[in-house]
Design a protein around this nucleic acid. Sequence first.
DNA 1: CCGGATCCCACAAGATACTG
DNA 2: CAGTATCTTGTGGGATCCGG
Lengths: 112, 112
Amino acid sequence: MFDPVCPSDLSPIRIGDKWAGMIIRCLEDGPRRFSELRVPLRRVTAKVLTQSLRALERDGLVVRRVRTGGVRHVEYELTPLGRSLLGPLDVACAWAEAHWEQLLDARESASP
Amino acid sequence: MFDPVCPSDLSPIRIGDKWAGMIIRCLEDGPRRFSELRVPLRRVTAKVLTQSLRALERDGLVVRRVRTGGVRHVEYELTPLGRSLLGPLDVACAWAEAHWEQLLDARESASP
DNA sequence: CCGGATCCCACAAGATACTG
DNA sequence: CAGTATCTTGTGGGATCCGG
């Protein structure tokens, strides 16, 4: 999913904006810092990542927590509502994995 | 889902473009003609509906069949691949129905 | 370390009018 | 009936630079 080769953006099923699905995946095992999120999400600029996180926060799917002890330290964590999306997310991933070859075949026979 | 009041576009889960989910729903009980689709999808212009249908066709989710017998007659039908999306679609609808109140609460407490 | 400010572009989506 | 043709607008996503 985080591999540029992996065609997760080819799937017709989307959760939130372009990166929200992957962000939620990154948070499923517990809170992560902003810079920790940037490691698997290398291809996202800081601004866009912030935008996505803010959108998730507005919808109550994620909480933002600022630890101001000496060094700046911001954590993001899934709320219960955010966790409730993990089920649908699994369904979406399973569908994509099962059918992406058919999708590719259909597209290339449609536009040679 | 087709009611303007129903907040299906509020859900973070989306299938295809803006109208694809509803189109697939309209086709789940069998083939439908273009003008039949326009009845429940009153708020979609013909152009946009055509665009969505063409996109679904390119991805192999829908087949377009022209019956040229006197009057023009075009039918759209789900392919097996398209039908395989009905499961994920149900999951998405179930999630939205179960959580849209929480979503609304989160949004209004975020931006008063 | 975690962003905000600014500028930019591509593309989705709609309004409107017209057609084989 | 089932679309096309044009035009316009809005917005998501990105590049780059700047700041507490």
